[in-house]
């Protein structure tokens, strides 16, 4: 049976950029374990001969012509921003490197 430990939940929350408190970890980890045990029932059910379905309808080649369409105005683009400076989105200092 797969196990999703409290530490693993903490790690996943970190990957998902959610600052879970200890209380939240205590609360969510056991619930996630129950859910995981339930969904894990499908492991190994379908073999290599079964193709995966990522799109419910089999469509291909949906393209757009390379023609410019109107953009938002900068005012519209920035209308929901928590902080704006010089017509740009102002964000706190960034720790990591660019990818």
């Amino acid at each position: 049976m797969p196990e999703i430990t409290r530490d693993e939940v903490a790690h996943l929350a970190d990957l998902a950029r959610i600052d879970l408190s200890d209380a939240e970890l205590d609360h969510l980890a056991p619930q996630l374990q129950v859910i995981l045990e339930s969904v894990a029932s499908i492991q190994g059910l379908a073999g290599d001969d079964v193709p995966a379905t990522s799109h419910p309808l089999p469509m291909t080649n949906v393209f757009r012509e390379d023609v410019v369409t109107p953009s938002l105005t900068p005012e519209q683009a920035l209308s929901g921003a928590p902080a704006v400076e010089e017509q740009r989105f102002s964000v706190p200092r960034i720790l990591g490197d660019e990818q």
Binding site: R64, D66, V67, V68, T69, P70, S71, L72, T73, P74, A77, L78, E86, Q87, R88, F89
Partner: peptide, 24 residues
């Protein structure tokens, strides 16, 4: 150097004023 971006019709050109070539 396409006219528009990969997934939308915004211009893919350089030099526009900040956040003027964006859409949802």
């Amino acid at each position: 150097n396409t006219n528009t971006k990969m997934f939308c019709g915004c211009p893919a050109t350089f030099g526009g004023e900040p956040n003027s070539q964006v859409c949802p």
